[in-house]
Design a protein around this nucleic acid. Sequence first.
DNA 1: GTTCTCATAAACGTATACAATTTTTGGACT
DNA 2: AGTCCAAAAATTGTATACGTTTATGAGAAC
Lengths: 237, 237
Amino acid sequence: MTITQQKSNFTDSVEVDVSHNPVYVGVEVAILEQRLPPGMRLAEKDLAEIYGVSRTIVRAGLQALSHSHLVTLRPNRGASVANPSPREAREVFEARELLEPRSAREAALKATKKDIADLRLHAEAEHEAMQENSSGRALRLSGLFHVKIARIANQQTIANFIESLVSRSSLIIALYWTRSSTRCDEHCHNAIIDALERNDPDEAEQLMRSHLVEMHSALQFGVPEARNKNLKAILGQ
Amino acid sequence: MTITQQKSNFTDSVEVDVSHNPVYVGVEVAILEQRLPPGMRLAEKDLAEIYGVSRTIVRAGLQALSHSHLVTLRPNRGASVANPSPREAREVFEARELLEPRSAREAALKATKKDIADLRLHAEAEHEAMQENSSGRALRLSGLFHVKIARIANQQTIANFIESLVSRSSLIIALYWTRSSTRCDEHCHNAIIDALERNDPDEAEQLMRSHLVEMHSALQFGVPEARNKNLKAILGQ
DNA sequence: GTTCTCATAAACGTATACAATTTTTGGACT
DNA sequence: AGTCCAAAAATTGTATACGTTTATGAGAAC
């Protein structure tokens, strides 16, 4: 027991590094792209086979995903893709409506030319995904746009909250989005970029707020239909 | 590969359940009570001995703690108590100043007689901890008070964010609190309870805001002094 | 006395074995 | 057919073994 305090020789705390865990990365992207439907069971043995790792790695990845509210773990019953309740869905969008307009305002004050160029490129990628009918990829990119705005605002703590809320939104949209209302991210996102480029905080804040309200109001908290898919077909390497 | 979607037979997503992991619980409380100083190394073997479990359990607990920003994991270098930078400290309090006054407002609208009674009891426990000079315990209870307010506001998603921010505040206070300024939670907390009891949202919001600003302004982001402690002595069963 | 090198020890990363628990299955009975 | 129950199979929970990486320390060189 020779353990003492370590020298604080690193300035910034290092986040949990799960970026190298193939299970975490693969399942996260699959959820964000709506290839894995809410509620789908994620058996450890299957994931271990799919990614060619041991259950040790699988469990670490699943635990991390459950911290992000993307996966639900129940003792002795294993993991499944999270299944956010109507209440949780409402709360997530309420939280986004609280945090993101403020972030957009800050981003408008701080955005550099490089930031704007990056966002324009990103919007282009979103547009392409839409064109080629990759709706899953388009949805994930759309979420990433919101995270990028938050990162430009340079408040990492709040940006992390927003990132978590945005991720959960993919599941919420999968469950509660009304087929009738069509998504119009392209127009909204371009308008927000314009406001950032003009360094117009009021406009950026207001555009972000109405964009979120619009999304929120397109959700219908009824009973979602069932789905049924094959895990290996979805995640197959 | 016979895995298909499970029946969504539970209404609310279940949180990660680490409450039964003795490492998670023990280390978390020790950090919140400032018995474990920022930066202190947490060797897996030592924790396994202390809590009488295998390294498997230790690693799961440490991973969960790192998601809460209470522990820092570095690949191949193990875990240590987090060491929030001045920037992170500032961000955490900025986020609290954004979220908690709003929660206090909501809580004032929703607080029941039972909620008020519970808060009064809690304030009493805080008072006792102060009296008997259990400053660590007092600090943890003080944080818990803020979490309880957020839970009364009945927005679990935001309450979870606040809980995370409050936990991190214990480390921030350990590092950056000025000895000169003395903590006066008792007065502030009682005033907030009074405002909640009167169902006065404006007052509750304002009291919470000034309480947080006062705490924030008592932080001094200089170089913290070093400490040196023995792990088994701190966590000893 | 300091610094460098390399052997040794300590600690972490991952796979795997086995125990505990849950789920499934097959048959007896109503 | 439908229900109940016990046995079998499947799945998760935990400990441990072993390879890899990092930290430590003794001795040589300067």
